[in-house]
Nucleic acid binder design. Structure first.
Length: 545
DNA sequence: TTGCAGTCAATATC
DNA sequence: GATATTGACTGCAA
């Protein structure tokens, strides 16, 4: 009966008591394959097979915060280190606590017990994550990400770059060992970090990992070790050239698996990489300036004219849009940090707010933040908003700004008038930011270039949306908004602070220090509240803000 | 179906 | 050899 009830009407995580969370943790563990096959002891029972599996989490969970990050692929050891055994209920309980407050453990692992460079390399690593994180470790990192306060992505990457450079550590090594990403991704990430708000849960993961890594006093040392081991392994391989089918080398630090076995078969099937000629790129950029969101027909035409596959053209547009967007984030961040070093906003927050402006156009003048007003006026205001925000020329020019080549072509883009406004969804999508700006237009809450009202929590699949309706309706990811996203962070600022080694959570700082923000946040909250109320009553909404 | 986020991996560049 | 760029792919949400 309880199961049925729980499965059909699960409560949101935030509404659950510690005890109430247990079943969900068990389920998660079960899904992760962490629980044994045995019969689970019913609540209250003291012993049972599960206990062990659960117990084993006791350590990794907290420790994973740091250790799993810093030593993912290394150690050759394989077993999940059966940590201190304890009674089943105890273990479950402690696990719950750990999930709830990951901080203390972190501290432990930080100072006292350095995450054992050789802790469970999780040979059983998940297929989904490149990182050899065992189920629970992965769980913990996800938990951490979910609970993480707003991080200054720009600052983090800056520091990481410094550390790597200073210590002559490569991106590849860092990426593969610490982040579980390839060199290209790392490079991209370090060079063009997105503002926190713009990141999905998954996208935040690398930043949390970086932050944790930065907090680890032995970070460089470990990476150096790794480097040495890699070198050793390489030399070894070189010497023992022939046979040698990869013994248990120091857990193949990255390189191995990429060069490992399975050599040829795929080679023949490999598609040659398409490399667009400069003229082709130019043509595409010109097309982009006229129609950032070309219709299928336009794409088709372009493909024909340029003698490219339509998929290539489509991909190009996708990539170009998103990359341009990111460049703008960076520009804004840099501009912002230069213009006002001591501002109350964190760089990421700033950029987050600025981003939409770049996409949409003038929206920035609005401070995108007049959220309240935008929240409903935009929605219906489709036509005008669309025409305005699509702001073909403005957008194109702004976006192209960083690219001199395009700038020269702006004249071209100056004529998009006729079709850019009506074309396909171009208008929708570009207007969306304006609309979305309402709810997201919160301080530090960038609008997404689509109508994703309250899409904020959409990626938080593994857990019920936090904090009821607001979390979904309001500005989803902004921790600047006390009642919306980052609720956990808000609830446990101090612990998270220590966890992330932050003097103070950027988000918290924002909302605390900036009265304007507070005011706006409060305003928005009240609007959301009223909207919800009205919605539930189905009465006409007719107020002004 | 479309657009996006995130990523990989081939290739270019330093 | 390390890093940067970029076409393509996957998974997700609307």
């Amino acid at each position: 009966g309880s199961v049925s009830d729980m499965l059909s009407r699960p409560k949101p995580w935030s509404k659950l008591t510690q005890k109430g969370r247990e079943p969900f943790i068990r389920m998660q563990l079960w899904l992760n394959g962490e629980l044994g096959q045995g019969v689970l002891p019913v609540q209250g029972q003291q012993q049972g097979p599960v206990l062990h599996s659960v117990t084993s989490l006791q350590d990794p969970l907290p420790q994973g915060c740091v250790s799993s990050e810093s030593t993912p692929k290394t150690s050759a050891s394989c077993s999940p280190a059966p940590e201190s055994p304890m009674s089943s209920s105890e273990s479950v309980k402690s696990l719950t606590e750990l999930v709830q407050q990951p901080c203390p453990p972190i501290d432990t692992s930080k100072d006292g017990k350095p995450p054992e460079p050789s802790d469970p390399p999780a040979p059983d690593s998940q297929p989904t994550t490149p990182l050899p994180l065992s189920g629970h470790s992965a769980l913990s990192i996800q938990e951490l990400v979910a609970m993480s306060p707003e991080l200054d992505t720009y600052g983090i990457t800056k520091r990481v770059k410094e550390v790597l450079t200073d210590n002559n550590l490569g991106q590849r090594l860092f990426g593969e060992t610490i982040l579980g990403l390839t060199q290209g991704s790392v490079s991209d990430l370090l060079a063009r970090p997105k503002p926190w708000h713009k990141l999905s849960l998954k996208g935040r993961e690398p930043f949390v990992r970086m932050q944790l890594w930065l907090n680890d006093p032995n970070n460089v040392e470990k990476l150096m070790d790794m480097k040495r081991m890699e070198k050793k392994a390489y030399m070894k391989r070189r010497h023992s050239s022939v046979s040698d089918s990869q013994p248990c080398e120091p857990p193949s630090v990255g390189t191995d698996y990429s060069q490992g076995a399975s050599p040829q078969p795929q080679h023949q099937l490999k598609k040659p990489r398409v490399v667009l000629a400069p003229e082709e790129k130019e043509a595409l950029k010109r097309a982009y300036q006229q129609k950032p969101y070309p219709s299928p027909k336009t794409i088709e035409d372009l493909a024909t004219q340029l003698n490219l596959k339509t998929s290539t053209v489509i991909n190009w547009f996708h990539n170009y849009r998103s990359r341009i967007r990111r460049e703008l984030f960076i520009e804004e961040i840099q501009a912002g940090s230069q213009s006002q070093a001591g501002a109350s906003d964190s760089p990421s927050a700033r950029s987050g707010r600025a981003a939409p402006s770049s996409e949409g156009d003038s929206c920035d003048g609005v401070e995108a933040t007049e959220g309240p007003g935008a929240i409903d006026t935009e929605e219906p205001g489709g036509p005008t908003a669309a025409a305005k925000s699509q702001g073909g020329p403005a957008e194109a020019q702004r976006e192209e700004a960083p690219r001199p080549a395009e700038k020269a072509e702006s004249p071209l883009s100056g004529t998009p008038g006729p079709d850019h406004a009506d074309e396909d969804h171009a208008d929708e999508d570009e207007s969306a930011p304006a609309a979305a700006r309402g709810p997201r237009g919160q301080p530090g809450v960038p609008a997404k270039p689509r109508r994703t009202r309250g899409g904020g929590g959409r990626r938080y699949l593994s857990r019920p949306a936090q904090g009821g309706p607001e979390a979904r309706e309001g500005a989803p990811r902004s921790s600047a908004l006390p009642s919306t996203s980052a609720p956990a962070a808000a609830r446990r600022p101090s612990s998270l602070q220590s966890l992330f080694g932050l003097p103070e959570a950027a988000g918290a700082r924002d909302s605390r220090d900036n009265p304007l923000r507070k005011k706006k946040a409060a305003n928005l909250n009240s609007i959301i509240h009223r909207l919800e109320k009205a919605a539930s009553r189905e009465e006409p909404i007719e107020w002004e803000f």
